[in-house]
Design a protein around this nucleic acid. Structure first.
Length: 766
RNA sequence: UCGGGGAUCGUCUAAUGGUAGGACAGGAGCCUUUGGAGCUUCGAAUCAAGGUUCGAAUCCUUGUCCCCGAACCA
């Protein structure tokens, strides 16, 4: 069941299903219960659970709790709640700790088979023996212990006979491996610690690299998806599985890029710092990228899931524009958040001409829909208005700019859902000179969108609330926590980049009466202001609203992204380049192979002497014995230049990771011979070459067409006739379409001479 | 190449030798009782240089840049 939107992992799954390597898909989301989940985890959750959903498979929630000193039940509960809140139901909720007996049993098996040993080196010694990135390590003196002694020691480790750190169990792999992870990695360490789930039963605890593959194997995971930094661990993942199996299904690990978001930090350590040092009010501070924080802020699970779908799954490190998240939020909230009116910074307005205004006015009720027509959702609430209202100070200007669409002296605007009013005078000002009370005449004839009596169109619309019945409310304005897109870069402490204005409390704000009983967590749009959610701090009669996100604002004078003084980018010094000399290039590698191997050197000389063979050709053809042998066999009956080009440029794609030794020189000779004598076109030959390598069939069997048998004129005509509009575009100058036409003709007439097709198309398309 | 990965519009991501496409962001316009939403439209990319090919983001070569790896963390 191929899914509509594919990424590289789903491509792999499609292939696994097609080849019957797997018949069902089982994934897992494996958080360590040592902190709160954040938006980065949300991506992983959406990938892991999303794949299971798309392929009608299963996804487990599994706590990767192999380190008792870092983990806590508190986190276990928050994690499952967050996963479910996001909208996913685990097929099972599992704990690595429950597999400790099985893991231990397999550890004894590894010891028994001589594949693991107990090592008494201290941690510093182990580090020292491990070598460096560019130098091999040394074998531990304990590596040669007998199976019996290892078994005895391992059992005593688990029996609690040794203190923490005294001994470890290590896999016996290869201390000279270029992959540091394979240099006799630790499997178990001693920890006399209480585990939140297994209690005090275990004195030794498995390491991630040992535990994770086994957990996957035990649960029957088919596709184990993790992040890029585990690429180096995959070799060990495979080693563990291959030496403890057989496992059916045999899990495989795939790595994707982790989520990096602008204007925030994601590491657990930094998040913890923010909490502990009180830069935020807690894990659920609405500015935090934690699921808890986003939930409290008012983000909907739907929006977060849409965001995760939007950013895709790939292997390139990337940093996502926070604007994408905001887009997803607005896109969701636009369709789900009912509209209500609220005023952040009220200015009182007396409505002159309101009936009974002198004795504080009579009130009227307007029926106001919860959603605009384009959203098309039902529902409305009564909106009260009387002779005194509040409008937002943002909507008043003593000296308005040219394109101002709000209220100003003598100007007319419409009160949303209500009447048009014309400002007549400023009644009061505060000490700073800002208007605090206005007077305006109300145009009684304008209810229901009607124009004022003077017939002038009123384009400005502002929000308002009734002075008498509106509710006081505390509004909490949240913004991006950091002032800069990449707070972790630039050398300094990321804390310095916190934007103190990212949290502001607005007191004295007022909202319409209908919000009196709004439920905690409910989301609303305050028209023209933004989206808000009712915070858990709300009390009856004392509403608290969190701003989720502002409305998109096409008005704002472009805030010119203040160039973050790019101090001549103290280019991050390339540690690798400093610590060691530049390594060998492939060319040098080939030259060395020849220096070591006189046979190969001789072949190199012979190939270089062939007519039409350049030094570069010879270098590549004599890279290894297999390639050299194949070439020398083929050039006996095929022109050397042709053979060289095909072997260098065309064979690799056909091979697709298969060893070149698999290629039968005789078949390749026949194929290239046909190309050389013109009886087979190059494009046909490429297709046959691929098939030849893939199937191992004989050239004679695969050859179904020859250059002579193909009559391309009808094919060309047919393709042009079938695509009149594309032909017209081509004639109009879109020459890129030639490739499209050639492709179509080649499909219709396999084996045709592409150059001739190309020419024929050009002739007919001009 | 110590080893493992990666590089496509400003950002994210497709195209698996055959029209470099989509989304976000941006510009212009339309519409509008939200300066919202929607609609129309424009600009914008294959890391570089060579090579193979009728045709290259894709295959080959040589470079450049970025990320990860030397916890008894995961």
């Amino acid at each position: 069941m191929a899914v509509e939107r594919n990424d590289f992992i789903r491509d792999i799954i499609d292939e696994d299903l097609r080849t019957r390597r797997h018949t069902t898909v089982v994934t897992r989301f494996p958080p360590e219960p040592n902190g709160y989940l954040h938006i980065g985890h949300a991506k992983a959750i959406c990938v892991d659970f999303g794949i299971a959903r798309d392929y009608q498979g299963r996804c487990n929630l599994r706590y990767d709790d192999t380190n008792p000193v870092k983990e806590d039940v508190e986190y276990v509960h928050s994690i499952e709640a967050d996963v479910r809140w996001l909208g996913f139901s685990p097929a099972a909720v599992l704990f690595s700790a429950d597999y400790f007996p099985k893991m231990y049993e397999l550890a004894e098996r590894l010891v028994t088979e001589g594949k693991a040993y107990v090592c008494d080196l201290t941690d510093e010694q182990i580090r020292e023996y491990r070598g460096t990135l560019s130098e091999p390590g040394r074998e531990s003196p304990f590596r040669t212990r007998s199976v019996d002694e290892n078994l005895d020691l391992l059992r005593r480790m688990q029996a609690g006979e040794f203190p923490d750190g005294a001994r470890v169990l290590r896999a016996k792999i290869d201390m000279a491996s270029a992959n540091m992870k394979m240099r006799d990695p630790l499997l178990y360490r001693i920890r006399h610690a209480h585990h939140h789930r297994s209690g005090d039963r275990w004195k030794i605890y498995p390491m991630y690299d040992y535990a994770h593959p086994l957990e996957d194997g035990i649960e029957g995971i088919t596709h184990s998806i993790c992040t890029l930094e585990f690429e180096n661990n995959r070799e060990l993942y495979d080693w563990v599985l291959d030496n403890t199996g057989p496992w059916k299904p045999r899990p495989h690990q795939y790595e994707m890029a982790r989520l990096v978001l602008d204007y925030t930090v994601m590491s657990k350590r930094k998040l913890l710092t923010l909490v502990q040092d009180k830069h935020v009010i807690g894990w659920d501070d609405p500015r935090m990228p934690t699921i808890a924080g986003m939930r409290r802020r008012g983000y909907s699970p739907e929006a977060i899931r849409a965001f995760c779908d939007m950013i895709g799954v790939a292997k390139a490190n990337s940093s996502i524009d926070i604007g994408k998240l905001e887009y997803c939020l607005r896109d969701d909230l636009n369709h789900t958040a009912p509209r209500v009116l609220g005023v952040l910074h009220p200015i009182e307005v007396e409505l002159v001409g309101w009936p009974g205004f002198e004795d504080d006015g009579r009130s009227e009720t307007i029926d106001a829909p919860y959603f605009p027509p384009d959203v098309g959702k039902p529902g409305s609430r009564p909106l009260l208005i009387s002779g005194r209202i509040f409008i937002d100070r943002e909507d008043w200007s003593d000296k308005p700019p040219e394109d101002y669409q709000r209220l100003a002296p003598g100007r007319t605007v419409r009160l949303r859902y209500g009447y048009c009013i014309t400002a007549t005078e400023v009644v009061e000002r505060d000490a700073a000179g800002n208007a605090t009370k206005l007077r305006a005449t109300v145009h009684r004839e304008t209810l229901g969108g009607k124009k004022p009596a003077d017939g002038k169109k009123v384009s400005g619309v502002i929000h308002w609330v009734d002075a008498a019945t509106s509710l006081p409310v505390e509004i909490r304005l949240y913004d991006r926590l950091f002032k800069v897109p990449k707070p972790e870069e630039g050398g300094g402490d990321f804390i310095e980049h916190i934007d103190p204005a990212s949290f502001q409390v607005v007191t004295g704000a007022r909202v319409e009466k209908s919000l009196a009983d709004a439920a905690v967590g409910s989301r609303w749009q305050l028209e023209r202001v933004g989206y808000f959610a009712v915070d858990q701090d709300s009390q009856p009669g004392a509403l608290v609203l969190n701003r989720i996100v502002t409305l998109r604002d096409a008005r704002v004078e472009k805030v010119v992204e203040k160039k973050v003084e790019t101090e001549p980018a103290e280019r991050k010094v390339n540690a690798k380049a400093q610590t060691r000399p530049k390594g060998k290039s492939p060319a040098e590698f080939r030259a060395e192979a020849r220096a070591r191997d006189p046979e190969l050197a001789a072949a190199h000389a012979r190939l270089g002497a062939l007519p039409g063979i350049t030094a570069d050709h010879a270098d590549l053809l004599a890279a290894d014995r297999e390639t050299a042998a194949l070439t020398e066999a083929v050039v006996v009956r095929v022109p050397a230049e042709l053979a060289a080009k095909w072997i260098i440029n065309e064979l690799p794609r056909a091979l697709d990771d298969k060893p070149i030794g698999d290629v039968d020189p005789e078949q390749l000779t026949q194929l290239l011979g046909a190309v050389a004598d013109g009886s087979l076109t190059a494009s046909a030959a490429k297709g046959i070459l691929g098939e030849l390598v893939r199937s191992g069939k004989a050239f004679a069997e695969l050859r179904t067409v020859s250059a002579q048998t193909v009559d391309l004129v009808p094919a060309v005509e047919a393709v042009i006739a079938a695509n009149p509009e594309k032909a017209a575009q081509f004639k109009a100058g879109k020459t890129g379409l030639l490739g499209f036409f050639v492709g179509q003709v080649m499909k219709a007439a396999p084996g045709a001479d592409a150059a001739a097709v190309n020419q024929a198309l050009r002739d007919r398309l001009v």
